[in-house]
Design a binder for these strands. Structure first.
Lengths: 339, 339
DNA sequence: CTGAAAGCGCTTACAG
DNA sequence: CTGAAAGCGCTTACAG
């Protein structure tokens, strides 16, 4: 590999001048620029990222931090990976995957290695020790999701509050008054629970109360098997319910199958609307699930954007954004059955 | 952040001695080692990865190269990402995600940036220009998948040949003689086609001929919608077929649903065995698909291992491995219907 | 507009 | 066993 010095030699200029023309960091005469560019072309020169990083104090590498143990990713969470990587590249950064257990101390290994300029955190808990750790340090970070207290913290998250209200209102409009929220559980209570589930439950409680509806909450495993089991339990325990909000992507198709196996017709007997799933999973159910689709790709992009904005323009307004889900019609919403 | 020089000052030794004790690269007296380690602890020192990389000429960063445009990843391909990242970390490397279009020239941008020590390539085509490009360069690489000619190229791939034979023999044992292979299409013919599909078709042709069976091949879109459409087409065109090999993960649940919508019972009228899908997708179908599960997590790990072996021990045997699928029973395999 | 030189944080012959 | 010094490939004051 040719170095900058090689280019300088061939172009008969100094190393510094090569740097200036490559980075446009100082004015360079047209003649000199031409010489340098020719030499670069002839040598097939490319700037070495490591040398540059050491001199600048910036690696242009970002880390995407996600739970190491969680080894079954929903179709939705994949989109975080790929859209984040895309956006990073688009803005001249690289994204490294950083699987991590929940111990906060492992974060200092990352931030003090000097390898990354910043961190994007996924799967945020309401009281997340990793966020506390990052807040205490100097490495910029952003969240996909958000903690209970978001003061001073850049984040992008799904607007679950809006999604729940929207879903409930769709069911109300169809005449449903006995509702259920079915999710995958809040996870680790010590950490305040998993944000999306906690927020969804709260909003579900508030809106059903406010609209004068009956609302129950059930949880089950995040898998098709979990969904099938859950369907049976649900029908046994809550025969009066006719409208279901389902926030458990992996369980979706299994849940729908389980309801029908027990003799229910969708949407004649029961209406189901999924929240925050992918369109791919929704279409795998039979009949296809009506769903408020998670804006996962947008979130991945904006999560990276928020971080890079902090890095490149620290004085810009703090990026904190909630993104709405989009509705996909499907075939599991219908009028409430007459008594 | 404390530097190595800071540690040296505090321990009253030279910079070099600090380096020797950290890296165990030269003998250091117990007394000196203790002083250095104390100083490190007191300063919370961590070696800077960039300085180290520049001096060593090794960044300990690997790139995972995948098609940028493909934005719907199957449950299986996600496992490549996470298992590769896990294994890289385990062996002291970091994995950066490298979305790339199919132009081979973009590869030199990656390899000549000096950022990565090696490259793992996903979604390999039979005649893959990216592999040619990499073969011409000096950056070590490994494939998840394989090209037509694998001479001198480290790879790990699914043993599709074995999977097809195994699937066919399961169907034969159940009395099926009219078989179909349904896949997602070979993709870009200019590149020789997508390896798994091409190999599966070839093997399917060979084994059916060899066993004296009837075998037809159909392709459809890689989505639930594609699966539903395909089911209708398939039934119309091949009413005599009773045993189906399905290698199209995203279309699986939709295909099964489509067959039943047309009045077929599984497995009474038709038997289906999926090849190379994930267990997650298989369980989303109703009834649950019988499937030869792709060893995707093993492949991700071994793909990274193969690369790191090349980096750390270039004289070891060339890593080239085929991994078998494992059977998951499901409920879509049954005896061929009597005439 | 251009260049000589210091410095980013390490590693590693070389000398002792 | 320990240290002084060169060097990895860049960037950037400073001087002209």
């Amino acid at each position: 590999m040719a170095t900058m010095q090689d280019v300088a030699n061939r172009a008969n200029v100094s190393l510094a001048t090569v740097s200036f023309t490559i980075n446009n960091s100082k004015p360079v005469s047209a003649r000199t620029r031409a010489k340098v560019e020719l030499a670069m072309k002839e040598l097939g020169y490319r700037r070495n990222a490591v040398g540059s990083a050491l001199a600048r104090g910036r690696t242009h590498v970002l880390a995407l931090l996600y739970p190491a143990l969680q080894h079954r990713f929903s179709a939705t969470s994949v989109l975080f990976f790929t859209s984040a990587a895309d956006q990073a590249r688009l803005r001249g950064y690289n994204l490294v995957l950083w699987p991590m257990s929940n111990e906060a101390d492992a974060i200092s290994e990352l931030t003090s290695s000097g390898l990354v300029d910043g961190v994007v955190l996924m799967e945020v808990q309401l009281d997340d020790p990793r966020v506390e750790e990052l807040s205490g340090g100097t490495t910029p970070f952003s969240l996909i999701g958000r903690t209970r207290d978001t003061t001073g913290i850049p984040y992008v998250d799904v607007n679950f509050e809006h999604a729940v209200e929207n879903a409930i209102d769709r069911l109300i409009k169809l005449g449903h008054t006995n509702l259920a929220l079915i999710d995958g559980g809040t996870g680790d209570q010590l950490l305040g629970g998993y944000g999306p589930v906690a927020r969804t439950r709260t909003t579900f409680g508030e809106i059903t109360a406010q609209r004068g509806l009956t609302g129950i909450i059930m949880s089950g495993g995040a898998s098709s098997e979990g969904g099938r089991t859950l369907a049976a339990e649900f029908l046994a325990e809550h025969p009066e319910t006719t409208g279901i909000l389902l926030m458990n992507e992996p369980a979706g198709p299994g849940f729908v199958a389980g309801l029908q196996k027990a003799g229910k017709r969708l949407p004649d007997d029961l209406s189901v609307i999924a929240i925050g799933s992918s369109i791919d999973t929704a279409t795998m159910a039979e009949p296809e699930l009506s769903v408020l689709v998670s804006p996962a790709d947008t979130l991945g992009r904006l999560g990276v954007d928020a971080l890079i904005d902090r890095l490149d323009e620290p004085n810009k307004a703090l990026p904190q954004r909630l993104i709405k889900c989009t509705f996909s019609k499907g075939s599991t919403l219908g009028p409430a059955p007459a008594h």
